[in-house]
Simulated assay, not measured.
Amino acid sequence: MQQKNTHSTNLVIEQPLIASNKLVVIRGAGDIATGIAVRLHNCGFKVVMTDIALPTMIRSSVSFGQCLYGKAQQVEGITAVEAKDCQAVFDILNQQQIPVIIDEDASLIKQLKAPFLVDAILAKRNLGTHKSMAPITIALGPGFNAGIDCDAVIETNRGHYLGRVIYQGPSQENTGIPGNIAGFTYQRVVRSPCTGIFKSVVKLGDIVKEGDLIAQVNDKPVVAPLNGMVRGLLNDGLEVEQNFKIADIDPRGLKADYTTVSDKARAIGGGVLEAMLHLSL
């Protein structure tokens, strides 16, 4: 089957191996979006991810969006590669890999003609996703109302309802409190002390002690708020505003795992899969 690229009158997109009913576009390519992508990929869906040019995820070791920084990214044995255009998207899919393409305003969704769209940006508000963008639209967490601007919303707050599918109405409100790990919530999240350029002095997986220098924003030092493992860390060279999340320290230390999809991402991924199957019956 051939499909014309609306961005170029001379380019013909070939997608001979892609089953059209298996194509899923995920907006966002951070750690939660990646957990969804891993679960869907393992179930035989063909996943395409979109993001901004310089994603600001901190759990970069488990974020497919990291491939936009120049190298292919592998998570749990699945490889993601940056796609420069729609032809590259289908070439990468045909290699059983996940393409990630820079497409901040989701302009390529109509061209890809995917039956499923998942908004996994997790901005706590709707950045433009609406039901008419795809036959089946699913969104994550606060900012969406199922039945109005999407077909289903997946609960993202930790607790009893994490991963629950909502077909009518909104999810729970944003609590503003990070998930509890070993008794720590907001304490484990490191935020920028000022506006400036971020540069780390540690790496993911390092064990640090409270007060250790872990990064700088311009010339201002950033220290570890507690003992633990560096589980999240922003990419060097990014400009951040004051109070922007730049790192995450896991108080479990060596017992923490920064290389695989989190329990939260896996649960949300299960909710997305449930909604997709339910809505396509």
Rank of each mutant, 00 (worst) to 15 (best):
Q2Y: 10
N5M: 04
T6C: 04
S8C: 04
L11C: 11
I13C: 00
I13P: 01
E14G: 06
K22L: 07
K22Q: 14
L23R: 01
I32H: 04
G35S: 06
N42Q: 15
N42C: 02
C43R: 03
C43D: 03
V48R: 00
M49Q: 01
I52T: 07
S61R: 13
V62W: 05
G65D: 13
G65N: 10
Q66F: 02
G70P: 03
A72R: 09
Q74P: 00
V75M: 09
K84P: 00
C86H: 12
C86T: 08
Q95S: 14
I98K: 05
I98R: 03
I102T: 15
D103S: 05
V118H: 01
A120V: 06
L122K: 09
K124W: 11
K124T: 05
R125I: 06
H130I: 03
K131F: 04
S132F: 01
A134Q: 00
G141I: 00
G143P: 04
G143Y: 02
D151V: 04
A152T: 09
I154R: 00
E155F: 08
N157C: 10
N157G: 11
H160E: 15
V165Y: 05
Q168K: 10
N174F: 14
G183V: 01
V189C: 15
V190K: 12
G196I: 05
F198H: 14
K199G: 02
I207T: 08
K220D: 02
P221V: 08
V222Q: 02
A224F: 08
P225E: 11
P225Y: 10
M229L: 14
R231C: 08
E239S: 13
E241Y: 14
I246A: 10
I246H: 13
I249D: 12
D250I: 09
S262W: 13
S262L: 07
K264F: 12
H278S: 15
L281S: 11
